[in-house]
């Protein structure tokens, strides 16, 4: 389980780093303005749109993909916990882990 968390964070960091460097190269001298909130473009907010941008090598989309990897890491940990408790035949904690997984899914899909 420890190994899983580490590799997830490593994969996510590497992806974010790659995307971030490409993003810097493309926009290095552009001014940044995050003073006022404008919601991020819709393309960066949904998984299917993200895939389309990724196929064009869009740097911001690569960063967002890394962030998705990062969010997936704890989710994967809960999935593994369900399996581990099932192997131990601990029904109570299979149910508990499944509830956590359901709440996580609700949050991710909403």
């Amino acid at each position: 389980m420890g190994r899983l968390l580490q590799s997830g964070v490593l994969l996510a960091s590497a992806t974010v780093l790659l995307g971030g460097i490409l993003y810097l190269k493309a926009n290095a001298s552009h001014p940044v303005n995050l003073r006022t909130f404008i919601s991020e473009p819709a393309d960066l907010r949904s998984a299917t749109q993200l895939l389309r941008l990724l196929s064009h090598g869009n740097p911001a989309a690569i960063v967002q993909l890394g962030i998705l990897f990062l969010i997936a890491t704890p989710v994967a940990r809960v999935i593994f916990a369900v399996i581990a408790f099932a192997i131990e035949r601990d029904r109570l904690y299979v149910v508990v882990s499944l509830i956590v997984l359901a709440v996580l899914t609700l949050g991710l899909l909403h």
Binding site: V16, L17, G19, G20, Y23, N27, V32, L34, I38, S39, E40, P41, L44, R45, S46, P59, A60, V63, Q64, I67, L68, I71, T73, P74, V75, R77, V78, V100, V103, L104, G107, L108, L109, H110
Partner: peptide, 22 residues
């Protein structure tokens, strides 16, 4: 795990800016 539960909602609402998150 707790943070992952709200991260999806933040992402959909456009709170996560790649230039800052990186």
């Amino acid at each position: 795990v707790t943070a992952a539960a709200s991260a999806g909602i933040y992402l959909h609402r456009g709170y996560i800016d790649p230039a800052l998150a990186f």
